[in-house]
């Protein structure tokens, strides 16, 4: 029982960046430019927030810089895939690649080693957790829902905010129109490029929060390649949930829980088997994508690739 509760608690913590990334990615998915660069955006914010914290000795500056720099990354991505009409999968991969090589370059040049920046003297991850007043009195729920980091609660709030923005505001509806039918959107006078820039900026903002959660809140340090495929987990969650916010988040939580399970399993086995467990989160994504597609597979009754 204790194991289960600590698994749930850890799973929720591990899900936070995935939830944020997924919700952000939803905007771009709806706007018709699938954002593969979530991975790179998360790295950019994880890296720059810690780097600036290291230099200014102030966490808030770091967080602000993380968000701003990720927005800049978002603008670069928008410029190439919206303004210049590059293929967004290729530009997205390019952004990921760029961040993955610029970060160690700057790290080596400014900090002196290629792979990590440690600011645990300024950020003490265990002090960041929030003790929620009412929640702490509920017996079992409090064990895993209480004492999470602020962004975990923010991410849960973001589910509601995203749904409201997407379905109840002008920007959200425009976003969906641009994704569904670009010509129609242009015909009624929507500035498709602007809407897409906006959607990518939303995505960058949320990915930035995800990156800050990874580096600042959870570890107080940046290590090279710390995002390790989380951005792609978000893309997978969006595909599995078919762009519906709550469903997508449910898949993101499944993927987050799997990561927590993997860490739990690592402590139970010897080193060799434990390293095998590292496959679990990635394998799980493929399996979940497969299972979630089975529903549609059964519905198909006409021959041909298109009718699937």
């Amino acid at each position: 029982m204790n194991n289960l509760i600590s698994l749930l608690s850890m799973g929720l913590a591990m899900s936070t960046p995935l939830i944020l990334g997924t919700l952000g990615g939803l905007f771009t998915y709806k706007a018709g430019v699938l954002n593969i660069a979530i991975e790179g955006m998360m790295s950019a914010s994880a890296f720059s927030s810690i780097l600036i914290t290291y230099y200014t000795r102030n966490v808030w500056f770091g967080i602000l810089a993380g968000i701003l720099i990720t927005l800049v990354v978002g603008v670069v991505f928008s410029f190439f895939s919206v303004t210049l009409k590059g293929h967004n999968i290729i530009t997205g991969l390019g952004i990921n690649y760029a961040v993955a090589s610029i970060a160690p370059f700057i790290c080596l040049y400014l900090v002196g080693n290629r792979t990590s920046i440690i600011v645990t003297d300024l950020v003490v991850p265990s002090n960041i957790v929030v003790d929620v007043p009412l929640l702490r009195n509920i017996p079992i729920l409090s064990d895993f829902l209480n004492k999470q980091t602020p962004l975990t609660y923010i991410s849960i709030g973001c589910i509601l905010i995203t749904s409201i923005i997407l379905y109840r505001t002008k920007f959200g509806v425009y976003t969906q129109v641009c994704g569904e039918n670009q010509e129609a959107a242009e015909a009624i006078g929507i500035n498709v490029n602007m809407v897409r820039y906006g959607a990518i900026a939303m995505s960058a903002l949320m990915s930035a929060m995800a990156g800050i959660n990874l580096s600042v809140e959870n570890l107080g340090m940046y290590t090279d390649n710390m995002v390790s495929g989380r951005g792609f987990s978000c893309v997978a969650a969006i595909y599995c949930g078919k762009g519906r916010p709550v469903r997508c988040v449910a898949y993101a939580i499944i993927f987050g829980m799997t990561r927590a399970l993997q860490i739990k399993l690592t402590t139970m086995f010897d080193a060799a088997t434990a390293s095998l467990c590292e496959m679990l989160p990635y394998l799980m994504i493929v399996i979940v994508m497969f299972v979630s597609s089975l529903g549609d597979y059964k519905k198909r009754n006409i021959r041909g690739f298109r009718n699937g």
């Binding site: 893309v235 997978a236 994504i285 994508m289 497969f290 597609s293 089975l294 597979y297 699937g308």
Partner: peptide, 8 residues
């Protein structure tokens, strides 16, 4: 099964 090939 139409599973997105890029992610898988």
């Amino acid at each position: 099964f139409h599973v997105d090939e890029m992610v898988s």
